[in-house]
Simulated assay, not measured.
Amino acid sequence: MPDQPLTLNSLPLFPLGTVLFPGGELPLRVFEVRYLDLIDKCHRADAPFGVVNLQQGNEVQVAGAPHEQLDAIGTLAHITTLERPQAGLFIVQCKGSQRFRIERQERLKHGLWVADVTLLPDDSAVPIPDDLKHTAEALRKVRTSLRERGAISADSGTDGPGTYQDCGWVANRWCELLPLKNELKQRLMALDNPLLRLELVADILTRTGM
């Protein structure tokens, strides 16, 4: 009998105007009460929260603004570092892990979203075919250059053994670097086929002359 998908109930959500990819890094500057409490509780419990892209609405609550509309697929975020430079402010670094699909969502009275979610399978390990290896080599050069300039940290994205041979990892890192609209990033992140995701990224690189 096949394994049943793992579900999480009442996962706290952090809607943002960005798309978090598995393995990606997310810096946050947190000052709203609803999210200070979320981050503090998740940090103390060593528990993840969900990052979802905003289809509509503002990252910061504004009186009279329409409620946020959230994309149905998001990514779990795990807190890696947390600093408290002053009262009412957290400087947080997070890392994306597993994708999830929202089954039911609820906006609580103080504005925090929670959801019952189903975790989606991790990308299968798919070797990069010969006709797409140029995308991996170009990515390696770009990330090396960014590190030398201090634009990304030395361990950003965990360039471990085999990462530049994996379709999903290479596609995800390109999606983070390319100036794509969030709608397109969301569609790419939601794809279950990592080879197809990399093929689409390669098409974008070709069209943009990169």
Rank of each mutant, 00 (worst) to 15 (best):
E83H: 13
L13P: 00
G24E: 09
S156V: 08
L20D: 03
A125C: 10
G74N: 09
N193S: 11
A202Q: 07
G150R: 01
P2I: 13
A47M: 05
T135Q: 06
S10V: 13
R101T: 11
A77M: 04
P179T: 07
F49H: 00
I73G: 00
Q61T: 14
D131W: 02
G74W: 14
S145M: 06
T158E: 09
G64Y: 14
S145A: 14
C94T: 14
D131N: 12
A154R: 13
D155L: 13
S10K: 15
A202I: 13
I102Q: 01
L6R: 13
E25P: 00
P48W: 14
L28I: 12
L6P: 00
V51K: 01
M1R: 06
L195Y: 01
E106T: 15
P179D: 03
L36D: 01
I204Q: 13
N182S: 08
W169Q: 08
E32A: 07
L119T: 12
M210W: 15
E176M: 07
T7F: 11
V51M: 09
Y35Q: 01
G57A: 03
L196C: 05
P5W: 11
P129A: 11
I79E: 03
Q98R: 14
G24L: 06
Q69H: 03
P85R: 03
S145L: 11
R84F: 01
L54M: 10
T118C: 15
A65M: 08
L139Q: 04
E148L: 11
L82N: 01
L8T: 01
Q93Y: 00
T80R: 15
Y35M: 03
V52S: 05
Q186P: 08
L13T: 12
L178T: 07
I91M: 01
I79M: 02
A136M: 09
R187W: 02
Q69P: 00
G24C: 07
T75N: 04
A171Y: 14
D37H: 14
Q165G: 10
S97D: 15
Q98K: 10
D203W: 03
W169P: 00
L139Y: 13
G157F: 12
Y35K: 02
L13A: 08
D46R: 12
Q55Y: 00
L28S: 08
T163D: 11
L184H: 10
S145W: 15
L28Q: 05
P27H: 04
L16S: 04
K109R: 14
A87H: 10
V170W: 05
W113G: 04
D155W: 06
E183Q: 08
L200Y: 07
G57H: 02
T208V: 07
I73D: 04
F90M: 03
P161A: 12
G209N: 08
T206A: 15
Q4K: 11
Q55W: 01
C175F: 05
V51N: 00
A77T: 02
A115S: 07
L11R: 04
K41H: 14
R140V: 02
D37V: 10
R107P: 00
V30R: 05
T135I: 12
D203M: 02
L108C: 06
D203A: 11
Q56W: 02
R149M: 12
R99E: 06
L205K: 10
T208A: 11
N9H: 09
A154V: 15
L191K: 04
A136C: 05
G17K: 15
